[in-house]
């Protein structure tokens, strides 16, 4: 596991749109009310750890912040009054699925996401390799293990221009070193003015992190 470069990000962040403010937000899936009365503010440099039992709406919350879902009631707004739905490029969501193509190699997969994020280096800038997957560049994705795929998927964070990272249990399937890298990368991202909302079942806390526990009576 190589050491992480001091600045693993391929592109600087655009102007800061923070804070992202949620006021009295409720969300329903079909008929079922999942959560209600949610008030949080995501500041520049902030980190929210979202906890809660299965089915309490952690992923739903992330999808809402990514602009994929509309809140049932309440408001989710950036500082300039834009909703995530009209400015989806401000958030990058890395969910349980890695959004990678088994038929393509690691380099082809990552080069696509790099170009998609507006990075023009080809195949992809090797300095943006916090998870040490450069060594696997020519390997087809379908032969990688779950943990390796996860590493490749998370490498997308290094290209992203999005100031807000939405990570859905990012440490799943990763070994101890990989998990450390995730948290280090989040810390670096916060230091450059970004923010992250991370769902996790892991115990322990992170410097300056705020916690949101879903599924409890409020």
């Amino acid at each position: 596991m190589p050491n992480m470069p001091a600045m693993p990000f391929a592109t600087p962040l655009p102007d800061q749109p923070f804070p992202l403010i949620l006021r009295d937000v409720a969300c329903a899936r079909g008929e079922a009310r999942i959560f209600a009365g949610l008030d949080i503010t995501v500041e520049a440099g902030g980190l929210w750890l979202v906890r809660g039992a299965n089915g309490t709406g952690k992923t739903t919350l992330l999808r809402m912040l990514a602009g994929l879902l509309k809140p049932e009631s309440g408001a989710v707004l950036w500082a300039d009054g834009q909703a995530p739905r009209v400015a989806p490029e401000r958030a990058v969501l890395i969910g349980h699925q890695d959004a990678l193509k088994p038929a393509l190699s690691v380099a082809e997969n990552l080069s696509f996401w790099a170009r998609f994020a507006g990075v023009t280096d080809n195949p992809w800038p090797s300095r943006s390799d916090p998870f040490g997957v450069w060594a696997l560049a020519d390997v087809p994705l379908r032969v990688l293990s779950a943990g390796q795929k996860r590493r490749v998927g998370l490498t997308r964070l290094a290209f992203s221009r999005a100031p807000l990272w939405l990570l859905d249990e990012p440490t799943t399937a990763l070994d101890a070193a990989g998990q450390r890298t995730v948290w280090e990368l989040i810390a670096l991202h916060r230091r450059r003015g970004g923010a992250a909302v991370v769902t996790t079942h892991a115990k322990g806390t992170v410097d300056g992190a705020q916690e949101l526990i879903l599924g409890e009576e409020r």
Binding site: A66, L68, L93, G95, A99, L100, R156
Partner: peptide, 14 residues
């Protein structure tokens, strides 16, 4: 849609 790319594509600048 199945491998999650669609969500990521829709959340991009395109």
């Amino acid at each position: 849609y199945r491998d999650g790319s669609l969500e990521a594509l829709l959340a991009g600048q395109l």
